[in-house]
Amino acid sequence: MSLALDAGSTPATLPAQRSRGYWSRVLRRLSRDPVTLACAAILLLILLAAVFAPLIAPADPFKGSMIKRLQPIGAEGFLLGTDELGRDMLTRLIYGGRQSLLMGVLPVVLAFGIGTTIGVIAGYVGGRVNMVIMRTLDVFYAFPSVLLAVAISGALGAGLNNCLLALTLVFVPQVTRVAESVTTQVRQLDYIEAARMSGAGPWMIVREQVLGNVLGPIFVYSTGLISVCMILASGLSFLGLGVKPPEPEWGLMLNTLRPAIFQNPLVAALPGAMIFITSICFNLLADGIRSAMDIRS
């Protein structure tokens, strides 16, 4: 409370004081949103578990036992049971987070970088450049994203790198379209005209006047794509186009446990549950950031 009072009644003798910065305000609003905080906490937990997997996992993710196949949840020594080759499920779920998070996040990060660059250029330059770029990207929209990912991945061959590349290509047009439309809106505002009047070059205008106003919406949109990307990545692995067995990865685990669905349905559903939890957390987090960033609401 005292902070808010200070900001309003700064005595004239103090040095120029920035009223609470934009991002500190966003953080403050986020800290009052329990759902977003819970999602962030869960994601952090999954991320930390994945990073420190060798330290916290109770067993070796590759070591199986023919005798102890498909143990139920809560079996002695196996908190979450075992898979079809008798490997500890908890261990494999922890290790699986490494690949799944990588495949869910990295393509979106790459697509965010590439798409923002292309989209802001298309939006700021406008005219023919815009038309050529956007119509070219429209070609990608002709295919459903799952089909596109499968097609690119299939053409390039299986493997983690090709899978990441395929997913990046799927998301670049979507991010570009959002970046282009936000930039086009911002470009026609008076403050951009005023900046042009000041004689600044296009690069300086984009960097200092445009980017700050377009990155937010593009970032929020991209965060929402992470969940889609994880599901697509799991799908690719499920089809055998992504991670190869015996690597633990949630989508792949879901596939290999599929025949066991009648013997041990709960264990077989665990990787799917992980995918579900992670992606819904990313979605809710994106929603929370979106509303926290809308400062005038």
Binding site: R18, L189, D190, Y191, E193, A194, E208, Q209, G212, N213
Partner: peptide
């Protein structure tokens, strides 16, 4: 438009 001619992200 005094509002549109100022960048909302700049002091």
């Amino acid at each position: 438009d005094s509002f549109a001619s100022l960048n909302p992200r700049l002091t």
